[in-house]
């Protein structure tokens, strides 16, 4: 199966025709009135240059790295400080992809956490307390699934490959060894770099937020189904690529 990810429309039409669709068990029975809106938000999203800012090119211009938010992108930038943002053609293109739901949890956690951050310590403490109360409220957590895409951290990963022929990209699946695998391939010494692939542990609040969201996902299969639907292009991508 050869896919060129021109845009969301093409990959969704491909997915509709793909027999693998049944493997993901897309039971579209979540009774929110806003299922239709998912379609709108997908159509609305065209990256229009966003991906350009996320490209790193090696000094010898052999490699291009598409850094996707929440896919160890900060760690990659730290690992490859000599690489620059350039719009050039390179023989090889690399990217890290991540389990879509795992990535969404990380992204939505970051979104919520960001609301508590301010330079005013008193205000920040108050906001942290307020966020604690919010994540104890089931209705609040359920509402998050009605606006799951907030920013680049929760945009589907496949959107970042808009216009690329994915068959020419060397993909790495996100896990605790991903940076060492990347550094080995591009011949960069990673020994001085911490594999900073789980920044959520930086903050107790972040851990609590992500734990609560996981609880909801386990409690309400409909929520998981919504994410499957929303990120189905990512699941196609994830299932189709060759692991490196």
């Amino acid at each position: 199966m050869i896919i060129k990810i021109y845009n969301m429309k093409s990959i969704f039409s491909l997915y509709t025709d793909d027999t693998n669709i049944n493997q993901i068990k897309l039971n579209h029975n979540f009774s929110s009135a806003f299922d239709k809106f998912d379609k709108n938000i997908k159509n609305l999203s065209q990256l229009n240059g966003l991906s350009d800012r996320l490209i790193l090119v090696s000094p010898d211009q052999v490699f291009k790295f598409i850094t996707i938010p929440k896919n160890a992108s900060s760690s990659v930038r730290m690992l490859l400080p000599e690489w620059k943002h350039l719009m050039v053609t390179t023989p090889e293109t690399l990217a890290i992809v991540r389990d879509p739901i795992d990535r969404w949890i990380s992204g939505i956690t970051q979104y919520l956490y960001a609301w508590t951050q301010t330079s005013d310590k008193v205000k920040q403490d108050a906001r942290v307390s307020e966020m604690h109360r919010l994540i104890e409220t089931e209705l609040f957590l359920l509402m998050l699934f009605d606006f799951p895409i907030n920013n680049a951290h929760t945009m589907p990963q496949s959107w970042f490959f808009d216009g690329y022929d994915y068959t020419t990209i060397r993909f790495y699946k996100y896990d605790s060894t991903v940076l060492s695998r990347v550094s080995e391939y591009v011949k960069v010494d990673s020994s001085k770099h911490i594999l900073y692939n789980n920044r959520t542990v930086d903050s107790l609040l972040k851990m609590e937020i992500s734990d609560k969201i996981r609880q909801i996902l386990n409690q309400y299969p409909e929520c998981k189904t919504r994410l499957f639907n929303l990120y189905r292009s990512d699941y196609v991508l994830f299932q189709t690529i060759t692991q490196h």
């Binding site: 009135a33 806003f34 239709k36 809106f37 709108n40 609301w115 508590t116 906001r127 307020e130 966020m131 109360r133 919010l134 409220t137 089931e138 209705l139 609040f140 009605d146 606006f147 907030n150």
Partner: peptide, 29 residues
């Protein structure tokens, strides 16, 4: 759920998030 919603409405953080989301369905397109 109504009680929870009333509770959420007391949260300034929550209300501000709603303005950040803006469009949530056809009624807000």
């Amino acid at each position: 759920k109504i009680q929870q919603l009333y509770y959420l409405l007391e949260s300034d953080l929550f209300l501000r998030m709603l303005t950040d989301q803006g469009i949530v369905d056809m009624h807000t397109l």
